[in-house]
Every structure is written in structure tokens, then in C-alpha cells.
Design a protein around this nucleic acid. Structure first.
Lengths: 341, 341
DNA sequence: GGTTGTTCGGAAATCGATTGCATGATAGGC
DNA sequence: GCCTATCATGCAATCGATTTCCGAACAACC
């Protein structure tokens, strides 16, 4: 059944009302070409446009200009609080430049992601932001092949073949480890994220590097199957059953909270018996008990940077590949203390 | 500068490759009209389409069919964890029906919201989901005027003139109050949300109704200026300075957490001195200290229901206005206890 | 064999805006 | 007074797919 949606007036109708040709109306209404039309006529067309409540049809315009002014965004899970701020950061600069966001919940399955990316391409998006990227992602390959501007955010590939905005995961985990060693900890364990994600891998590398530099044992690592409390609980259980640690550096706040639960189960107190450091500084982790010491990334800034990069790419200014790195900062709270405290 | 984006093949090229007219190719590729074309020809066209990697141009198709298969979503703040799950719930049914989401961060300013809605209309969205709605919203009026399908979610207007999906806020606050009275509380205060939002108003009404029914004083109310911890802290300070309460029913989890801070400042313990009940059951409120007793709404289900309603509206099946109410459930944790406990 | 009916596929108009090119008018120069 | 330069505007093609209308081909029937 066709919906009885009444459409607004077309450019033709505005032109008729103003007594000019539609091409003239088009030029008058487009800031870039308005100088071609005399002021009086422009005023008349403007008036007619206002009077009729004309709104230019973005689809029709896009068909002709081959520009949809749409940007596709692939996120693994919109409901995950990490991505909200990134989206928020992306939105304002893009909106200001006349772009709208086509946000897609892409999950973690590479095949599904590829399909959804195809959908976006069929919609003729002018660019794509990927927050889902695996360490070597087929979606990136297909975008690169057709020359579609693309920017990665939050996660990066193993080889740098696109512009991207990431947090310095290695350095961030270094902050975490050095804080613990400064407190006097020697037996420090790591709960790692999924190794197919750059954050999982890089934070683990950051842990190993920092521990080695400190001359400590860097092998007490337990890998979680995902970024969730359940996975963190499980990984922490494994870690605690195998090693005697006085501190845990987790790859993610949720993993750290899972570790809280594992400690509680074993009757261990945090931070008196075991210190815990998270990663991300999610909302509310300052209110948990004990308030979580963590590493803050700046997701809004990352979104904004990614938007700026993408706009450059779309306009063809920034041809070169650029990697922008946002520095994480250390946020001390009460989940860490000297050992045997 | 024009971007050198190489487009995929057009339908014409597929038709040429298959040796048929482009109209034939169009019919063969469209499931609804494929029966008009003989199986052999269809197969040939399919093959050519595959070989060339043809993807139909959604913009061009939309121009002709007057259907963009785009749904606009206005949310006040994507970064707010409440909206993630709603978006997530919206997405799957709509995606399954071939729709993509145009999500817009609309803030709380009605003028800006109206502008953004205009943008969406110019993009010829097939429907709009409003999560921003004020109690009497101009955006609703303009959508209604042009006959654009619209569904409200989470917040509703004061008069029911559109389909909407809401949580039963009055009943939910009733759960909160009855839990407290059952524990023996008599001096119960309320931290209300902004009265221009339906959630703020209705939860307050729910509080007043339930208190009156219980024969208790329903006037110990402090109104917060927004849904944030800061606003909750402020409102709780006011409440505590004016009244002697043994329990607080807050209109929102963040307000409840603000109340935690206010209690701490005054040296009052929760729940021993003052019980606190939140609303929403946001992620992580089970990990704060004490774990927050709250009312769970089901935002994913609300999103899904809203999507179903909108699809009905778009297809013209559901002409009637429908209000769907999702029942909130009570979630007991450790922030409530009998008075003088 | 002529007529009717059916099926399949082509021709062309259409959606609404943009833009290269053409045309008409006006001004200016000799 | 004629020729050219300049400027404002109109004309028409175009983007890529959909869909209404038609014609051709073929079968069946009397």
C-alpha cells in the first residue's frame, strides 16, 4: 500500500511561483551559485521558497551531484556506553558540515559487518567511520578499493593503511603499570581483552613492555573472551587460581569490575589485599565500591578528531593517511593501595 | 573539489551485459516483480549482476518510489546510556525490514529539534521516532501536518495524538513507594525530574498518588533541574535541609546517586539512616555502594515496540493511534531497609 | 486461417534537482 | 552604427532506477 504522504513543493513549483525557470531557482537557492543571479530575482525566488515552505529534496540533489551528505558509522554495539560519547563527538562537526549519520549496529561478526558496509555503500554514503575494525578488516579493504573515504576510530588495524584515531593503548597501560610499581607492587597480573581487537592486543603489549622495563614478571596474564563483567570474572578467577598477585591491571573497566567480583568470592579485599586498575573511565566507575582507579580515554575528542579527518578526506584536502593519537590520562581513585596495606 | 569516487555499475550496464533492456533487469532483480520475467532471462540477469558486482542505488530508487527506507531518530543525547538500549531495540526490527536509522543528537532545545526534524524531512525519511519529545511538542505538530509516520518513545506528550511507547511511570513510582511503605517508612521524600518531561511529571504524580493512597504526606518533594548526579545532589540537599525523611524515592538513578552524595556529606548512612530508591536500573548501579534498589524499565523492548509500531504506520496497516505501555519491574538491592535500621 | 487471449519484454515518461551550453539583452568601444 | 564583451537567464541533458503503456510473439480454439 502506498502511503498517502503529502510531499512538499518541488523546485519547479517554486520557480513557477517566482516566474522563473527552475534552473534559475536552483542557482539562486544554492549559496555557491547565487552570485550568478541578480539580487532582485534572487529575492523573489527566496520569497516564493519561503511562502511555499520549500525544502530541497536531498535524495534528488544527491542523485545528480553524486553526494549524499551521508556518513556511515559502524559500531559493534550502540548500547555499549563506550560508543555513545564517540558518536556524540563525531556528530557535531559532521552535522555542522551538512552531513547526517547513518549509524549501524554491526555486532562482532565480520561477515555481517561486511554486509552492512555494502548496504551503506549502496546508499552512496560519502564516507565511513569504523569503530568495529578487527586487526585486519575486510570492510577496510573493500572501501579502499572503491576509493571511499574511511576513518577508523578507537580500534585500529595491525597495518596502518587508513587514517585513524586511537588512544595510545600501549602508553595508557604503561601508566597503569607504573602507578602500581610506584606503589611497591611486584606481583602484577593482567586481564587482557580479546586479542583480535587492537585494544586487547596493544594494552597487553603495553603491560608486557612496562613490566619488563620494571624488571618484573610479565607472564601473569589471563585473556578474557570479551569486554564484559562476566568475562572479567572468569578471567580473574583463572588468574587468581594460577598466580599469587597483589595487583591486577585490567584492559577495561568492565573486566576490572568482574575482577572485583572474583576477589569478593575469594574473600579478598580491594585494595587492601589486591589492587585493581581499570581502563576507559566509564560513567559511574567512580561510584562503585571501591571507586575504581582507571585510565581515562577521551572518546568525545576521538570522535571529533575522526570527524575532522573524514571531512578532510571527503573534500580531497587530506590525501595522505593520518593517524591521530589521543593521549590517555591516569585517574587515581581508591581501588589501589600499597601491597600488604 | 570533486572526489574521485569510482561508482559501481548501473542497472543499465547490467542490462547491457545480460543483453536485455534495463526495465527488464529492474523487474528481474525486484522480488515483487520477478514473476513477470521468465526464469531463464532472470537467471541471466542475476548472473550479470553478480559478475559486475551490481548494487542498486538506494537514492535513485528512492527518488522514483518516493520511499527512502530511512527512519529518522531524534534523541536528546546519544552519550546518555539510557538511549543506547532504546536505539539498539529500534534497530533490529527496522533493519530487518530494510530500513536504516538516521540518528540525530538533538539536545534539549525545541528550536534546534525542530530544525533537525526539518532536515530529516528534507531527506525524505519514511518515518520518525522521537525520544526527545516535550509534553507538547512542535515537532510532532509538523510531522502530523504532513502525514509523516511518527512514534514517540520513552517520553510522551500531555495529550495523546500519536502512537507512542512508554514505560508506565505512574505505576513504576507506585512500586517504589509501596516498597518503602511496606518496609515501614512514613517520611518519604521525592526527588523529581524536570516537569517539562513526561517522565518527570508522571513519576511525580505516581509518587503523590501512591503516598496519598497510603495516607502519607506527599508534599516532601524537591525538583531537580535535569537528570544528572549534580542536579540530584542539589535537589537532595534542598530536600534534606527542609524535611526530615527516612527514605527518598528518586525519579532517576542518577538523581539517586546524587542523593547518595548528599547523604554522605551530611554523615548519613544509606540504608541505615535513609533508604534510597532509583529509577531506570542503569548499567552498573548494582555495583555502587550500596547497590541501588531501583525500578527497571526495559528500554530494548521499548525500542522494539516502537519499531513495530512505526513499521505498521509506514505500511499503512496501523492507521489508528496506539499507545503501548511497558511495565516496569521492581529490583530490590541494598539501598533500602526498614527505618531506624 | 482468423480471432482472441496470454505472456514477455521493450520504449519512454517520471521522480527532483544540477549544470554545461546557448541565447538574449545590454553596455561599451571604435 | 556596428561589433564584441559581458552578464543574466533559459534550455535541455543528466544522475539511476521504476513503472505504465504497448507491441510482438505465441498458443489455443472454433
Amino acid at each position: 500500500m502506498p502511503l498517502p504522504l503529502q510531499r512538499g513543493p518541488s523546485l519547479q513549483q517554486v520557480a513557477d511561483a517566482a516566474g522563473v525557470h527552475r534552473s534559475t531557482a536552483s542557482r539562486a537557492l544554492n549559496p555557491a551559485t547565487a552570485h550568478l543571479i541578480s539580487p532582485e530575482i534572487t529575492a523573489r525566488i527566496r520569497a516564493a521558497s519561503q511562502a511555499l515552505g520549500y525544502r530541497r529534496d536531498a535524495m534528488a540533489a544527491g542523485l545528480r551531484t553524486r553526494r549524499s551528505h551521508l556518513v556511515g558509522v559502524l559500531v559493534p554495539d550502540i548500547a555499549n556506553p563506550v560508543f555513545g560519547p564517540i558518536l556524540s563527538g563525531l556528530e557535531s562537526p559532521l552535522k555542522a558540515a551538512g552531513y547526517s549519520l547513518l549509524i549501524v549496529n554491526a555486532g562482532n561478526d565480520a561477515t555481517r559487518q561486511a554486509e552492512l558496509a555494502e548496504d551503506l555503500i549502496a546508499r552512496r554514503v560519502d564516507g565511513i567511520v569504523l569503530a568495529t575494525v578487527q586487526r585486519d578488516d575486510p570492510v577496510v579493504t573493500s572501501c579502499l578499493r572503491i576509493g571511499l573515504p574511511i576513518v577508523l576510530v578507537n580500534r585500529a588495524e595491525s597495518t596502518a593503511r587508513t587514517s585513524s584515531v586511537v588512544s595510545d593503548d600501549v602508553a595508557g597501560m604503561g601508566l597503569s603499570v607504573r602507578h602500581l610499581t610506584a606503589l611497591g607492587h611486584c606481583a602484577i597480573g593482567h586481564i587482557a581483552g580479546p586479542p583480535q581487537l587492537s585494544t586487547g592486543l596493544l594494552r597487553r603489549q603495553g603491560f608486557e613492555t612496562a613490566m619488563t622495563e620494571a624488571g618484573l614478571d610479565a607472564t601473569m596474564i589471563s585473556v578474557a573472551t570479551g569486554y564484559s563483567r562476566e568475562a572479567g570474572l572468569e578471567a580473574a578467577e583463572t588468574l587468581l587460581s594460577r598466580h599469587l598477585v597483589t595487583a591486577i591491571a585490567a584492559a577495561n573497566d568492565l573486566l576490572a569490575l568482574g575482577a572485583y567480583q572474583a576477589l569478593a568470592r575469594r574473600g579478598l579485599r580491594c585494595p587492601q589485599d589486591v589492587s585493581v586498575v581499570g581502563y576507559n573511565d566509564m560513567p559511574l566507575v567512580d561510584m562503585v565500591q571501591p571507586p575504581l582507579t582507571t585510565i581515562r580515554i577521551n572518546p568525545v575528542a576521538m570522535g571529533q578528531d575522526a570527524a575532522a579527518l573524514l571531512l578532510g578526506l571527503i573534500d580531497g584536502n587530506t590525501k595522505a593517511m593520518t593517524t591521530r593519537i589521543v593521549n590517555p590520562v591516569f585517574v587515581p581513585r581508591q581501588s589501589t593501595a600499597p601491597p600488604n596495606g
